[in-house]
């Protein structure tokens, strides 16, 4: 890390700044390390195989968990507690369509670059918890599909897959989400990372299916700040011809005039996404590309931590 950034946690540094310091793999490690440094470790404790600590016996505790040796030596009953050994199967679904490969300002990462670094960091974080992590990349079709694995080489495979081509002219999340459900045979977690510039009904329908199957769903809605707040001028001109890179639709508009209406529409769309997804029990978070990587990481990891 640079001198300026060395004294700070990587998950809280400006994403573009930290991304410029190294390859995605390195950046992901810095981010995860910084994230874990700030995380108060409170792993779920239970009665798995790895011993964690003792606690006094309380009526109702199962007798089989009493440490009889201590009871014999100290004549007091204590219960042996074990650190839970989880084996969550998580699949990260990443939108790599052309709309993701855009940034409103050169000082920021593209939505795709930002999302790829979030994917790498999240995968590393989950794998360090011995969760199985898979990856599905999609645009107008599924570009990559890595089944969830907890093995040590899985993260590198994921990082390598992130470098596969994408940038298709359409986002078809339905196929990707179907594939994710297929890749996770039992209850797990699906993390959809996308700008959600797609048909919401398809997404909602498939999220609903995933929830019926018992999966936890996390949707990270990636937005460039310029997509939330339209710039007042483009190249000094108030008038602009806006072109959708995927559909090719051209829309001439006077920026100052449409800003308020656009802002209201975007906020309404985000609110609809939020209401639709949270009503299904899914977690929905809006992440702008100027937010430190720790923000989406913390949101996704918090969901993970609520799972058994």
């Amino acid at each position: 890390m640079s001198t300026a950034a060395a004294g700070r946690r990587a998950d809280l540094i400006d994403p573009a700044t930290i991304a410029s310091l190294g390859h995605i793999e390195i950046v992901a490690r810095w981010v995860v390390d910084g994230f874990l440094t700030g995380l108060h470790r409170s792993p779920r404790k239970g009665f798995s195989v790895e011993f964690a600590e003792h606690r006094p016996y309380q009526p109702g505790d199962e007798l089989r968990h009493i440490d009889w040796k201590i009871a014999a030596r100290a004549e007091r009953w204590v219960i042996k507690q074990y650190e839970e050994e989880t084996n969550l199967r998580a699949t990260i679904v990443l939108d790599v369509s052309r709309s993701m490969d855009w940034r409103g300002d050169d000082s920021r990462l593209t939505k795709l670059a930002y999302a790829e670094r979030v994917v790498a960091a999240l995968a590393l974080l989950l794998l360090r918890q011995r969760d199985a992590v898979g990856l599905i990349r999609f645009d107008d079709r599924i570009r990559s599909a890595l089944p969830p694995r907890a093995r040590s080489g899985q993260w590198r495979r994921i990082v390598t897959a992130l470098e596969d081509p994408g940038a298709g002219l359409e986002s078809r999340a339905n196929e990707a989400l179907e594939e994710a459900a297929r890749l996770i045979p039992r209850r797990g977690m699906v993390v959809l990372i996308s700008d959600l510039l797609m048909d919401s009904e398809d997404v909602i329908r498939h999220v609903k299916s995933l929830r019926h199957a018992g999966h936890q769903v996390v949707v990270l809605h990636i937005l460039d700040p310029s997509e939330r707040e339209l710039p007042t001028a483009v190249g000094g001109a108030n008038e602009a011809l806006l072109v959708d890179p995927e559909s090719g639709i051209e829309l001439p508009a006077t920026m100052a005039e449409v800003r308020d209406a656009y802002r209201a529409t975007v906020e309404r769309a985000l609110r609809e996404w939020h209401e639709s997804l949270t009503s299904l029990g899914a977690s929905y978070e809006v992440v702008t590309t100027d937010a430190p990587f720790g923000v989406p990481l913390r949101r996704a990891f918090a969901v993970r931590q609520r799972l058994p």
């Binding site: 806006l242 072109v243 656009y262």
Partner: peptide, 17 residues
């Protein structure tokens, strides 16, 4: 100018037609 969120503009236009 490329702008992926043109659909939001379109929607705003529809809603404000």
């Amino acid at each position: 100018m490329e702008f992926p969120a043109v659909r939001y503009l379109e929607r705003a236009e529809r809603e404000h037609s």
